[in-house]
Amino acid sequence: MLEGSLRDFSLDDLLQMISLGGKTGELHLEGLTPFGKRKGIIYFENGEVKDAETEETRGEIAILDLLNIKEGTFRFVPNDTLHIKKAISKSIPDLVLLATSKLDEWNRVKSRVESVDSVFKMMTDDIPSEIHLSQTDWKVLMLLQKGMTIREAALKLNMTVFDVARIAYGLAALKIIREVGQKNPDTNEVKVKAPPKNFILRLIDRIRRL
């Protein structure tokens, strides 16, 4: 068994070692991704990925989530994985590439959707005269305008937080919704993003006196 921290041994190094060594077993991962905490297992057979699972998902969605863990711990258990059905056919380099592009897209999404705990307000001022939304876009919009966070909407719709965040990004770029704050998942308290009204009033007064 091999275990440690991803600070000392990066996930890339770990995957390369398992792949080149033709190892068979389970790689247990736990840590932080940009989409929240993740815990899961990647199953290998002769150095190739067979399947993956997290607490919420399985297969390719699960492994793409797990490959974005940057801080956390790992444990590789050499084990027979014959009971695991092969559900992932992509190679490790292809999966790493996909996970990286997902991370790049998330960085773009973050310009409008700061966190998976973001809450939104529906806007009516600037909506273009004609917009086309898919059924999924509508479902996401309906939940977000009720005050649900990205995370809550994803759970309700059985979607990944990334996919919901991507739709929210599109809706925000179209000025249909606007991020107004972030909800603390433990207390449900919403921290409003707006600048303090007091400051704006003081600034108005200051500029008038200039």
């Binding site: 707006a194 009204k197 108005i204 500029i207």
Partner: peptide, 20 residues
């Protein structure tokens, strides 16, 4: 013109207040 620039900033600040 300072008064004119002030006027622009004040309009923007009013808009920020309305927006919130």
């Amino acid at each position: 013109n300072k008064e004119s620039v002030k006027n622009v900033l004040l309009k923007l600040l009013e808009l920020i207040l309305e927006n919130e």
